[in-house]
Computed example of a mutant assay.
Amino acid sequence: MTSSPTTVLTPTAIALGNFDGIHRGHQKVVRPVLDPVLDSDRVIVHSHPPTGQERGSVHVYPTVVTFKPHPQEFFSGQKRQLLTPLGEKAQILERLGIEQLVLLPFDQDLAALSPQDFVEHLLINQLQATRIAVGADFRFGHKRAGTVEDLQAIAQKFGCEVLITPLHRLETERISSSQIRQALINGDILRANNLLGRSYSITGTVVTGQQLGRTIGFPTANLEVSEDKLLPRHGVYSVRVWSNPEASPPSAPQIGVMNLGCRPTVDNSHQRTLEIHILGWSGDLYGQTLTITLEQFLRPEQKFSSLDELKQQIAQDCLTTRQLLHPESPHEV
């Protein structure tokens, strides 16, 4: 699904932007390249000649075009943790119906392109765009000089229509990746999930840990996660766990308790770990890839005076999780 400007399948209908998180607002931007029949409540449509997709004579590939690295990472020189690293972003877009994800290498040459050259050489000549969808705040070209109005005017010369999606709000709050990022850092999972339009997910591989959980009756799976994945506030969470989320049909999730932090009661190190205790599970998960979705923040990380006190709290966390996520089931932990 992932390609470059030189390997892209053309012609294209393009949703253009960074799309970190693919939240509710991003999905509004993506939708016009999937559906040629649009209504004014979803987007502002600037009418131009119909695309091949609309004529039915030529297949126009629904495409998302984004940048790698993130422009802020390029200009700051600092690695940026992402709501949706590349693999995760590709999976979500594919589920939405996007056929290809094109990565524009964001370097000095790209940053120096004028708005005119960016549209003409990249979007029109290389990607053969027949339709371009953007958010109302999209900026492009050297020093972000190009506006959506500029994009419309330039693209119109080549018979390419531009669809501008108004900024999306949930009640009175504007939905943005930065708002979701801050909610996760604060441990406000319900707010983050509401802005995303789905539960925040983390995917990783189960690796061998210190197996301390087994000694206190709560075995855990230690998850190794990509370094560029944004992790939320340290603490304990109610989660759902998929062992094969991409299966068709997908398997039913298990429920569990996730601890993210440095385990101050049983470990003097400051190394962060991500551990999941799956309620009622007794199998071997080593080497498997798990995807967990964060459903609710239970409590911050804390140091207990004894292992017995820790065990009592974990048992309470498990009970709370079962009541929240699976109230009709027995209360095994």
Rank of each mutant, 00 (worst) to 15 (best):
H46D: 10
L310Y: 12
L167F: 05
H331L: 15
N268H: 11
G159I: 14
V241P: 03
P330Q: 14
G256D: 03
R144K: 10
G56A: 07
L196S: 02
H46Q: 12
T203V: 06
D41I: 15
G280S: 14
N194F: 02
G87C: 05
Q302S: 15
P166D: 00
L170E: 13
Q78P: 05
D150Q: 07
F19E: 04
V225K: 07
R322T: 09
Q128L: 13
N125V: 08
K143Q: 13
P115Y: 00
Q316G: 06
G77R: 06
H70A: 05
I292F: 06
T273E: 10
D35T: 13
V207M: 13
E54I: 10
N259G: 09
P253F: 05
A133L: 01
V257M: 02
E99K: 08
Q254V: 05
R181N: 03
H23C: 06
I124S: 03
E295K: 07
L190N: 11
H234S: 11
N268I: 12
Q78H: 09
L9I: 10
L319M: 08
N259K: 01
S3H: 04
P219K: 09
N268A: 13
V43T: 11
S305V: 09
E227T: 14
A247W: 13
G209N: 02
S269V: 07
D317P: 01
A90N: 09
V241G: 00
H142E: 12
V29D: 01
L103P: 00
P115W: 02
T205H: 14
S282L: 15
V58C: 12
G280P: 05
E99Y: 09
E301W: 12
F19R: 01
A221D: 08
G77S: 05
V8D: 05
A221Q: 02
I278Y: 08
I292D: 03
A153C: 09
S57Y: 15
L260K: 02
Y237H: 01
V207I: 14
L184D: 00
G209R: 04
D109T: 13
L38D: 08
I314Q: 04
P69Q: 11
D188C: 03
K89L: 03
H59S: 09
K143M: 13
L212E: 08
E94R: 12
T165D: 04
Q108G: 14
Q271W: 10
G146A: 04
P115A: 07
E328Y: 10
N186V: 04
A192Q: 02
R322H: 06
A221H: 00
